[in-house]
Design a binder for these strands. Structure first.
Lengths: 145, 145
DNA sequence: CGGCATCCAAGTCGATACTG
DNA sequence: CAGTATCGACTTGGATGCCG
């Protein structure tokens, strides 16, 4: 658990954007899934969600926080750096470590989200077919313009 | 089944608008639920969804049709009106009876929707509490302006 | 009855630049 | 690192009026 998030997890080839089932705003569902395995820092979330501007990421997180689905915590920086860690020797102490984590309420959404994902997984081809058919009929209705 | 739809089913007291789980556009979920028990005519849908302008109702229905969730059918009007029914004696024959019905794909959404409704039913109070707390802290952060 | 056309207000989202 | 500020495009949805 708490492994680094897959950078390609939410690439634009992922057809999740065509399901009619949505959770909150455009990125809320993906954010929740990123927090599924434990707390994450802002910059950690930015890796899989690198197509999301920091403004939107902040905005979505604030919305989730407002609804009690996500909790934002600031940990005081350790003044005595007895555990610098390998490769982190050059960093000056940040003003505070900020983490986002799912609340129990946020976690309770994982069930419905799994159901939604299962539905999308099972039916996204039908959705694509229907849309292509609709586009085709719309085209044929046009007099070759 | 096929009883008339409850006019108050989707009144604004219904807190479904605060759940983060959405199906398609603003009214798609409600439309699907209205079609759950069988085909409905446009004017039938307008009763429980009377807060929805006809433009939006059409727009949502077109979207659902495009995605293969709803099918729109036009039946030829019966020229011989052997069944006028009580109280309907004054109606002149319409140009065609139009009905909207769920497709199997649309019907397959009822399961996830039930899950979403169960979640909302179970947690909407927590959502409200969180929002009120958030509003309160936002107010107290303001310097009594 | 079952829409469509038009206008307009509000919200959403993205790009870019800047900050403590 | 973790945001904030500003601008503008795009989308969504409501109000109103008209049509076959």
């Amino acid at each position: 658990m708490r492994e680094p998030l897959d950078p390609d997890m939410f690439d634009e080839l992922c057809p999740s954007s065509l399901t009619p089932i949505r959770f909150g705003d455009k990125w809320a569902g993906m954010i929740i899934r990123c927090l599924e395995d434990g707390p994450r820092r802002f910059s950690e979330l930015r890796v899989p969600l690198r197509r999301v501007t920091p403004k939107m990421l902040t905005q979505s997180l604030r919305g989730l926080e407002r609804d009690g689905l996500v909790r934002r915590t600031v940990q005081a920086p350790q003044t005595h750096t007895d555990e610098v860690g390998p490769g982190g020797a050059g960093g000056r102490p940040p003003s505070g470590r900020i983490e986002y984590a799912l609340t129990p309420l946020g976690r309770s959404l994982l069930g419905p989200m799994a159901v939604a994902c299962a539905w999308a997984d099972e039916h996204w081809e039908e959705l694509l077919d229907a849309r292509e058919s609709a586009a085709g009929t719309a085209e044929s209705a046009r007099p070759a313009g």
